[in-house]
């Protein structure tokens, strides 16, 4: 019963609050229309209960500016489509409650990635390139398995640890927040390191540290990381990027030098 009272109390509090008017300065630019220089356009909307940026942006598009471009897919914080700079920081817009924002805000597309228009960027293209480069798939010991047979066993704790690293949604926040990547476009980025750590942990993957060294053992890889760790701080899935990258660095340093 205490839960009911608590929840009702919260609902009442929300309902009685005076709604705010929010200002969004949104970076507008359409690469297909290079004649119009990038500019900020200001939109004002009235805040509603449990309004997220997904709701706010759709309201702007439906009622104020139907040409505004942005990407949402799952609108539930699962798919990673809607990463953008909210007041300068990469965030998933769909799960950013406007109640957590000040009245004046700026929205901009994620830097680093190819701009499609306004808030929409082509993270998918970059991620596919990253996957191909780092071969982010399981390199099984045997190519064919007999699907009729009982599956290989795996320690339950290990499975959970692998899933912890497998939770990456490739939203691109970590790369957009990465000072190294911003300076050097061929940098693998935290998303790539996370995947390398994930496959390295997986006993079903036949690759050795020597193989991983081939992939990330240089300055575009783990030795290029300057440990600014904004990746860790902005990751919407709270992946343990700091410890994983440090771990990879130690492993790769030992593998490379033979120490």
């Amino acid at each position: 019963m205490s839960a009911i009272i608590e929840n009702n109390g919260a609902a009442d509090a929300v309902e009685s609050r005076q709604s705010r008017w929010l200002t969004f300065d949104i970076l507008r630019y359409d690469p297909a229309d290079p004649g119009v220089a990038p500019h900020l356009r200001t939109y004002r909307i009235e805040e509603a209960d449990s309004m997220t940026l997904f709701i706010a942006l759709n309201e702007i598009r439906e009622h104020q500016d139907p040409t505004l471009k942005f990407d949402f897919v799952c609108r539930a914080g699962i798919c990673g489509s809607c990463a953008m700079l909210v007041n300068g920081r990469p965030k998933l817009a769909c799960r950013t409650l406007t109640s957590s924002l000040p009245t004046e805000n700026t929205l901009a597309p994620l830097p680093f990635f190819e701009l499609i228009g306004d808030l929409s960027v082509n993270t998918g293209k970059w991620m596919r390139g990253m996957s191909e480069r780092l071969q982010t798939w399981l390199h099984a010991w045997e190519d064919e398995v007999d699907l009729r047979k009982i599956e290989e066993r795996m320690d339950p704790d290990l499975a959970e640890q692998i899933y912890e690293l497998d939770r990456c949604i490739e939203c691109g926040c970590c790369v957009a927040a990465c000072g190294t990547a911003r300076m050097r476009e061929d940098f693998v980025g935290a998303v790539g390191f996370g995947k390398m750590a994930r496959f390295r942990l997986d006993p079903r993957d036949a690759r050795t540290d020597d193989d991983y060294y081939e992939l990330i053992g240089d300055d575009t890889g783990v030795f290029g990381c300057m440990s600014l760790l904004a990746c860790h701080d902005v990751c919407p899935k709270s992946l343990p990027l700091q410890t994983q990258i440090a771990f990879l660095r130690r492993r790769m340093a030992m593998t490379g030098t033979g120490l």
Binding site: E151, M154, D155, A159, I162, Y163, D166, F199, D202, R204
Partner: peptide, 9 residues
């Protein structure tokens, strides 16, 4: 499972 999905065990 053979392709790498980390099924809960």
């Amino acid at each position: 499972a053979a392709w790498g999905t980390p099924w809960s065990r």
